[in-house]
Design a protein around this nucleic acid. Structure first.
Lengths: 349, 349
DNA sequence: GCGTTTTTTGCAAGCGCTTACAATAGCGAT
DNA sequence: ATCGCTATTGTAAGCGCTTGCAAAAAACGC
């Protein structure tokens, strides 16, 4: 404390100029070496690299992006992170991004609508070059902002009614349709459906797929068997409890709009003393990692979550490259994964 | 395409100078208004704010941080995101951060050791002002880098052997000890233990707690009942399968080092035809949301995951404020949450 | 009304890096 | 040796914002 002069408080960051001086070149040359500019003499390049190495120089990202206009950062807006659904998509995103030199800025909206648009405003400050929105609430308001600012963005697993966004989703309708048909073919006629949170298009599509399949199977749609859920395990549990008590005759199968809800349904069924699949068949949607570890292993509709993340990144990077690209929509194929939670039902039952 | 002159390709970003001009002041004044500098005349402030509003001005973050030296960004390094353990901690982090004006940069290491240190190098470029490391692999190498660069960082749920880091963890030893004692008190003497990934301290602490409790309960530690796992559900499943086949007499209880492993154990047990808790008691660690939704509800040791995230953020922000603060270690209390997966065992069995 | 203070502003110098544009160097051809 | 090119490097003007310093205004004291 006595002589503060002797302790230089300055953060002695190594800058490009230090490197330039050390290598006996101008900072422009250092910059060129670092950005792999082609016309740099071999010997100069080596000299610079040696200096970089020796001084432990690391470029300052903000300076770089201020000067170049590119931040090499993309934003990722997620509703929350406490389930593996989002996590798996993120895994795919991250994986794809690993090949590029983009970093990701994470924003979570905790399903608080107000916050999402707040964040999107924040994105507009130019920090991020593009945006990945996983199952966003899409109150249109902020998509307008995004478009106005001409910021590339991709909607993952949530179509935009306006049709003017880039979206990566799964074939939700078909997935639900096939799954329901499967249940029909197994002999089920009383098939309950736990919807997802109907604020998102994917949930609606799944519901429609379910209905269409019943109709095609000449099974009347009974409204008391279609219950509105919200993709949460707890809700699936509660709904199923109620369902099993109040509907008579009870359903012989429950198709849940996502695996988490299906897990909830399994728990409720077991608690009610029903064996799965003997007394009740259960079918999920997503195929998160857990689906194959629960007992019995869950039959479910696989969404290629990781792939969705990867594809979204690819699309986003393309859009960043060329802002004039027209909006694309990609629907990746779902696939029915038959495991142990559904069984053929005897028509006489 | 014909006359490209008419289309100004320039990204017409609104800058602080535009606002200054519009409000008839200098950019310095605008900057002061925006940073809530106290000595600005009320009328000027209003004029500026009005201009900001009207032009839809949003400050450029990189310019701001280049000039000020503060990026207001913290880095978050996670091993992966596909389980709710990390997600829940992140939730806490995010929640606490919402009160501040920091954003978070996300890095995932996918448990690939090489990558972690790669990232940490990247952090050194000054983009982030501090780092939160969730259950990192800690190959010491990059902690050295961090310390050398004097970048504040907090280790979450992973102590640093060197004792010189800030860490937020749970009372792992005590948690495991209490849980094991509980099992003993229930009459169990053949208690198997599925360890976590022993590369992290927390896993070791839990193992030690388990051993200590057995010793205190005068129960000999049988090595064949202690199996090395890695915190994954699948591994828990496989281990339990083997355990049930090969050990004779079989354990009457299994204590898994985390809930995921416990879920795996439950599945394996059920598959082997054992009822839980009647034929086998199972106890977990973490208390992730799912723990109370599986059937039977899992008895487990709660780690205050969200709180850990929040505390970590608080500590980090303090460290950023004042770099000279000495390293702190906080161990948050765990708590045994008794639910339905363990039962008292008849001594005559 | 004048010298002092205290507020409010503007000026201008960067922050560390990129990138036209210009200058220099190197080289074979003439 | 000179010219014409091309390869290589340097110069310098920013990118958009913050901030120390100083000037200008307003407020105060007598």
């Amino acid at each position: 404390m006595s002589n503060r002069k002797s302790s230089p408080k300055k953060k002695q960051r190594v800058t490009i100029n230090d490197v330039a001086r050390a290598a006996g070149v101008s900072n422009a040359t250092v910059s060129r070496v670092l950005s792999e500019y082609e016309f740099v003499k071999e010997s100069t390049r080596n000299r610079v690299m040696e200096a970089v190495e020796r001084l432990g120089y690391v470029p300052n990202l903000q300076a770089r992006s201020l000067a170049s206009g590119h931040s090499q950062i993309i934003g990722l807006l997620v509703p929350n992170l406490d389930n593996s659904y989002i996590g798996t998509i993120t895994q795919g995103i991250d994986q794809e991004l690993a090949h590029s030199n983009y970093d990701v800025m994470l924003y979570t909206s905790h399903r608080h609508p107000g916050k999402e648009s707040y964040y999107v405003d924040a994105f507009a400050n130019g920090l991020t070059e593009g945006l990945l929105l996983i199952a966003p609430l899409v109150p249109a308001a902020y998509l307008d902002t995004l478009r106005a600012q001409n910021i590339p963005y991709i909607l993952i697993d949530q179509a935009d009614a306006a049709e003017s966004s880039n979206v990566v989703e799964a074939t939700n309708w078909q997935g639900a349709y096939e799954a329901t048909r499967y249940l029909c073919e197994l002999g089920h006629t009383r098939i309950a459906f736990i919807t997802g949170w109907l604020g998102v298009q994917s949930a609606i599509d799944r519901l429609e797929g379910y209905k269409a399949a019943l109709t095609d199977g000449a099974i009347p749609i009974r409204e008391e068997l279609v219950i509105q859920g919200d993709y949460q395990q707890q809700t699936g549990y509660e709904i199923t409890q109620k369902l099993l008590q109040s509907v008579d005759p009870p359903p012989t199968a429950i198709f849940a709009s996502n695996d988490l809800s299906a897990f909830g349904a399994m728990d409720a069924a077991r608690e009610a003393g029903l064996a799965i699949p003997d007394d009740l068949s259960i079918l999920g949607f997503d195929d998160i990692p857990q689906a194959s570890f629960v007992y019995p292993k869950l039959t479910t509709v696989r969404q290629p979550l990781e792939l969705m993340g990867q594809v979204a990144v690819k699309m986003l990077l393309e859009q960043i490259e060329d802002r004039s690209l027209p909006p694309q929509r990609v629907a990746l194929a779902t696939q029915l994964v038959i495991r142990d939670s559904c069984r053929r039902i005897d028509p006489t039952e």
